[in-house]
Design a protein around this nucleic acid. Structure first.
Lengths: 132, 132
DNA sequence: AATTTACTTTAAAATAGTTCTAAACTACTT
DNA sequence: AAGTAGTTTAGAACTATTTTAAAGTAAATT
């Protein structure tokens, strides 16, 4: 079981619930998802879990750098398993996010970070809408 | 009364409540604020208003392009009176936003916008945290 | 292996931010 | 002056998320 090791390496106790979630999330392909999305998937996979556990787990995964929370105005938190440096298109009307490949965008000249602070990430969001 | 004209030009009926809010927001200096922040200010200025009105008003102001809603993971919606093209530092710990002047940052090469869509805005968020 | 300790899960309640409802009100048009 | 369409309001409703506190489980200690 790959996930157990992954969790331990990340410094997280590999509980049954975390293993179930890790198995679903880290199966190769990247994706965006909400806590509710994930719970549905958990249920479909024949497992059960409290929504509070899903939230707890996602918070932990985020803290140890297994997933990202995407910056965007949205009523619902969206998480991302893609930990590569990359950015997003945001459909303003639907709230849907799509990855922008990193070589598709180029940020020249970063601003000076305020004194006493360090840069902890850059998010570029390109808002789009249907043209009609 | 400047605000009345501004509202009319934007195609909004200049009601008392909208004028009170416009007077507070468009007084020269730009700022970030939440609906609750603004209500506090309204109260301090000796006026009264329902929080629902504040939300309605901000939504309208946003729709007609008088203010922006800032993209950022935050439990609370943050609005911005600065309509110039510009970006933000986001303090990850406090959620506080600060403007980045537009000449401090330079985005070279934008990705191709998906077919059938148009670009409706670009937000760059540089996350920062205290270095200690 | 048994016991202890610290961390985790859970259902349910609580909270926070925002939107909805429907009645009263107000700006604008006729 | 009367009509109508848009606006405001208090309060209820709603949604996403967090908290609570008791029960459960993994790991550490004996």
């Amino acid at each position: 079981m790959q996930s157990k090791i992954k969790l331990r390496n990340a410094g997280l106790r590999p509980t049954n619930q975390r293993i179930i979630i890790a198995d679903l999330l880290f199966n190769g392909s990247n994706r965006h998802f909400t806590a509710e999305n994930l719970l549905d998937e958990i249920n479909l996979s024949g497992n059960k879990m409290s929504i509070a556990t899903v939230y707890n787990c996602l918070k932990k995964f985020k803290n140890v750098g297994l997933i990202n929370q995407v910056e965007s105005v949205n009523d619902t938190a969206i998480f991302d398993t893609n930990m590569d440096f990359h950015h997003h298109f945001l459909d303003e009307e639907t709230g849907e996010l799509t990855d922008i490949k990193n070589n598709e965008i180029h940020l020249l000249k970063l601003p000076e970070i305020p004194k006493g602070y360090i840069n902890s990430g850059v998010d570029i969001i390109i808002k789009i809408k249907k043209n009609n």
